[in-house]
């Protein structure tokens, strides 16, 4: 995880340097804003990474770890399938076309999007987490 922190701290430093050098060479506002926002984003990520790294004990970060030792670690959610993602995509298309065509499409598009997001949230409550089992392998046990 130290890599994660190092990556974002170097990115933030680099962005800040480029932004500063850019302003002094050009005094141009669009570039300043873009590079400045990039610096802020990278700095935010760097700060978060620094704080999160202290509590991270990932099996993946331990070069000597075996599956037996890592048993029980959370592998995240695994969904079999879900109909709502394609609904999200269609409702985004609908609402963007509405921006050009009709307000009605914008309202219904946003409504469909909100419904889809609500259903996705409801699905999440029912989703099981996979964990690394005691023996080598990745079979679902929960």
């Amino acid at each position: 995880m130290k890599t994660f922190v190092a990556l974002f701290i170097s990115s933030a430093t680099f962005s800040a340097s480029v932004c500063t050098i850019y302003w002094y060479s050009s005094h141009e506002y669009a570039g300043l804003l873009l590079l400045g926002l990039m610096t802020l984003a990278m700095s935010f990520a760097a700060g978060y990474a620094f704080l999160a790294e202290r509590e991270s004990h990932l099996a993946g970060d331990n070069p000597q770890m075996t599956h037996q030792q890592a048993a029980g670690e959370d592998l995240g959610i695994v969904t079999k399938e879900s109909a709502w993602p394609i609904v999200v995509a269609f409702s985004v298309l609908w609402l963007l076309i509405g921006m050009v065509w009709s307000d009605f499409m914008i309202f219904t598009g946003v409504a469909a999007l909100l419904i889809a997001v609500w259903r996705l949230g409801a699905e999440s409550a029912r989703i099981s987490h996979r964990r690394i089992p005691a023996k080598d392998g990745g079979k679902d046990i929960t």
Partner: peptide, 9 residues
């Protein structure tokens, strides 16, 4: 976050 045990960066 989801690297297998031993799979360091």
């Amino acid at each position: 976050l989801y690297r297998a045990p031993g799979m360091t960066m």
